[in-house]
Amino acid sequence: MKRAGALLMLCLFGGGALAAPAVALPGLGADSHRSVVDVNTAPWRILGRVQTSLGGRCTGFAVAPTVMLTAAHCLWLPATRHYIQPADVHVLMGYAMGQYRLHAQVTRFVIAPGYDPANEGGTASEDRATLVLDRPVVTSADLVPYGEARMSAAAMLIGYPQDRPEVPYGDVACQINGLALNGLIHHDCSATRGDSGGPLFVRQPDGQWGIVGIDVLATEGRGGFAAPLPH
């Protein structure tokens, strides 16, 4: 009887505790549409998982053989109110399910001078970090040119999101919704925590893809904002 009673209590009450509902992540919405991409093919070869020795993970992308961009907030440590040391930041190129094409160490990084982690929302348009690596991670032929963001233009955003951190995962069928006066680019791509630092691609008038921004903020529903690229 004690055993049967325990099982009954588990069915009535324990099931909810053992199978708590998943917390809704910002930026995905109810109609999120994402898929896995092959980061060993163009244009995704520039993509890397940026991770720290403290367990932090974000996304980054190469803009030169030994230079990557990511979101500055990925390198900020709220507990110490300082940025992490460059030696504690690593990049895994082509990462998927524990495998990667290349590992690189960050030797130094530069935070955009206008970014203030104490005023993240107010300075989101400057939420950029330039990472200098200890070795080349792509060839010049792999690089994707900068482009121009235009209203309603087709867009793509891929990263390593919190709910799928082991695979390059994202939205390849979204669009640009607006351009803010401070430079932020509003998109409706399904992207959330962990995608920060990922490249926002926009199809250009000639049909080619160009990078226009760095994913930095997620909205309550599907979509978010990208910071403009450095000049």
Rank of each mutant, 00 (worst) to 15 (best):
Y146C: 00
L28K: 13
A30I: 01
I84Q: 12
Q99R: 15
I111M: 07
A154D: 14
L69H: 09
E120S: 13
L229P: 12
P145M: 04
A17W: 14
P230S: 12
Q204S: 08
G147K: 02
G170P: 12
G121N: 13
I211T: 09
H33I: 03
H186S: 13
S140D: 13
R81C: 01
V36D: 11
V50S: 02
L47S: 07
A227Q: 08
P161A: 07
A71H: 02
G29K: 10
P228F: 09
L7N: 02
G29N: 07
G224H: 08
N119M: 05
A30L: 13
R222Q: 15
P26R: 11
L92K: 10
A22G: 06
T80I: 04
S35C: 03
W76N: 02
T41W: 02
P165Q: 04
V132H: 15
L77I: 05
Q105G: 01
R135S: 15
H33E: 13
P136W: 04
G121P: 00
W76T: 01
T59F: 04
E166V: 01
A154I: 00
Q51D: 11
D163T: 02
L179T: 01
S152V: 06
T59Y: 03
A64I: 00
G221K: 04
D116T: 02
T59G: 05
I46D: 09
P21V: 03
V138T: 14
G183E: 03
G60S: 09
T66C: 06
Q51N: 12
G5N: 09
R193Y: 13
G98A: 10
L69T: 02
V106H: 04
A154H: 13
D206I: 08
A62M: 08
Q99E: 13
V67W: 10
D88V: 00
V137A: 05
L92C: 01
M68L: 14
Y160C: 07
S53K: 05
A124I: 07
H33Y: 04
V50N: 01
G147V: 00
V23W: 12
S35Q: 14
D38L: 08
A96F: 00
L200K: 06
G56C: 09
